[in-house]
């Protein structure tokens, strides 16, 4: 796996899964791709299809209705796939902990490799998290 991961680390393709978030982390993820933060300089690219993805960025609490779809998305992803949970919601539920539609936290639905907490995490935090992931791959 070592060699594979080393090559993978040069160009991570990410797919963005929104599992009932408030949209805020999602916007900040997009923000990472635009000129101010520009994640693409690390070879990281947002892709449209799960079949192309190496990393799943999951935001939101994982509501009951969407959790089954998130599972399916995870199964469709080519392995190895790294799951990064962005925001406090997938980690602990945040404000929606007691919501009747909450089927989270995310680790009950799919295995999680990394958490980047915050409500929302600042773009700098997310870059630090991604850099950490890249470091682990080397």
């Amino acid at each position: 796996m070592g060699a594979y991961n080393r090559i993978l680390g040069k160009s991570l393709w990410v797919f963005h899964v929104s599992a009932s978030p408030c949209n805020n982390c999602d916007i900040e993820i997009l923000d990472l791709l635009t000129p101010r933060y520009d994640l693409e300089r690390f070879g990281i690219k947002l892709v449209g299809s799960i079949r192309h993805a190496d990393v799943l960025l999951v935001t939101g609490i994982g509501s009951c209705k969407i959790s089954e779809r998130v599972q399916r998305i995870y199964e469709q992803a080519p392995k190895p796939v790294f799951v990064v949970a962005i925001g406090t919601c997938p980690a602990a539920g945040a404000t929606f902990k007691n919501a009747y539609t909450n089927c989270g936290p995310l680790e009950k639905i799919i295995p999680v490799d990394m958490y980047i907490p915050g409500c929302p995490p600042k773009p700098e935090t997310m870059i630090a998290g991604v850099a950490e992931l890249l470091g682990r791959l080397k």
């Binding site: 978030p21 408030c22 509501s63 209705k65 929606f96 919501a99 539609t101």
Partner: peptide, 13 residues
């Protein structure tokens, strides 16, 4: 409904 989180109920609690 994919994003339904039931905030009305949370607010009432």
């Amino acid at each position: 409904g994919w994003m339904h989180r039931g905030i009305e109920k949370i607010s009432e609690e």
